[in-house]
Computed example of a mutant assay.
Amino acid sequence: MQKKEFVNYVIFGVLTTLVNIVCYALLTKVFQIDYKWATTIAWIVSVLFAFVTNKLYVFQSKQKSTASILKEFISFMFFRGLSYVLDIASMIVLVEWLGWNDLIAKVIANGIVIIVNYFASKYIIFQTNHSKEV
C-alpha cells in the first residue's frame, strides 16, 4: 500500500464516518427517527460520499467511460451493501441484545465497516492496475 493512498484512505474514511455519524445523530436526536431507519439513511448518504472520494482521491481510478464507472459503482454498491448488513447487524447486537448506548455502538460498528470496506475497495472495486478503458 502506498503511503499517500493510506493517508487519503484514513482522511476520507474519517470524513465518511463523520458524515455517517452526524447524519445518524441528526436523524435520531433531532428528527426522532428510529435508529434502524436512521442507520439506513446515514448509510446511503455516506456511501455516496465514499464512492466519489474513494474513486477520485484515494484510489485515483482513471476509468472514465460510462461502462467502467457504472461497473465500479455497481461493485462499490454491492460491497457497501454487504457492509450495510454488517453495520445494521452490529447495531442490533450492540443496542438491542447488549443494551449499549446507540452512539457508542455506531462508532464501533463504523470501525469494523471501515476495515472491511478498505479491502473491498483496494483489491476488488478500484484496482489500481487498470490501465485500459472498458
Rank of each mutant, 00 (worst) to 15 (best):
Q2N: 15
I11E: 06
I114T: 11
V14G: 13
W100D: 01
Y24S: 06
S75Y: 08
Y118V: 02
F78C: 09
K55I: 02
F79G: 00
N20K: 02
L86C: 12
I21G: 08
H130V: 12
K106A: 12
N101C: 07
L27R: 00
L86I: 12
V95N: 00
F119H: 11
V113M: 07
I21Q: 06
I88N: 11
N129A: 11
Y9F: 15
F31M: 12
I114Y: 08
L27I: 03
R80H: 11
Y57S: 09
M1H: 13
N117D: 09
I74M: 09
V116A: 14
S121C: 13
K29C: 06
I114H: 01
V116R: 01
T53D: 10
D87S: 12
Y24C: 04
F59D: 05
F51N: 00
A89F: 09
Y84L: 13
L56R: 15
A42Q: 01
F78D: 00
N101G: 11
T17K: 00
A89L: 08
R80S: 07
F76E: 01
L56F: 09
W43L: 06
Q63P: 05
I88R: 02
D87V: 06
W100A: 10
Y35E: 00
K4F: 13
N54A: 15
S68D: 15
R80N: 10
I124V: 14
Y84W: 13
A120L: 05
I33W: 03
K71S: 09
K122T: 00
S75D: 08
I11Y: 02
V22P: 01
S75K: 14
K3C: 02
Y84I: 05
I74Q: 04
F49C: 03
V58P: 02
A50K: 00
L103H: 11
T39V: 05
T16S: 15
Y9H: 10
T53I: 07
E96P: 06
A67T: 15
Q32H: 12
N101I: 04
D102I: 04
R80I: 02
S75W: 05
V45H: 00
I115W: 09
K122F: 06
T39F: 04
Q60R: 15
W43I: 03
N117G: 08
V14D: 00
F126H: 03
D102S: 11
I41T: 07
L18Q: 07
K62I: 13
S65I: 07
S61E: 10
S83R: 01
K3P: 01
K122W: 08
W97C: 06
N110E: 13
N110D: 14
N54L: 11
S121H: 10
Q32I: 03
K4W: 10
I112R: 01
D87M: 05
V7S: 13
Y35L: 05
C23W: 03
G13S: 06
M91G: 02
T128I: 13
Y118K: 03
F79L: 01
S68Y: 07
Q127A: 10
K71R: 14
V45T: 01
L48N: 11
V52R: 10
T128L: 10
K3H: 09
V47Y: 03
V14S: 11
I11R: 00
I41N: 05
C23F: 07
V58M: 05
M77D: 06
A109T: 03
Y123N: 15
F49P: 00
A25Q: 06
W97P: 02
W43S: 08
E96M: 05
T17E: 05
T39N: 15
I108Q: 04
S68P: 04
Y57P: 02
Y24H: 12
A50H: 02
F12L: 03
A25R: 04
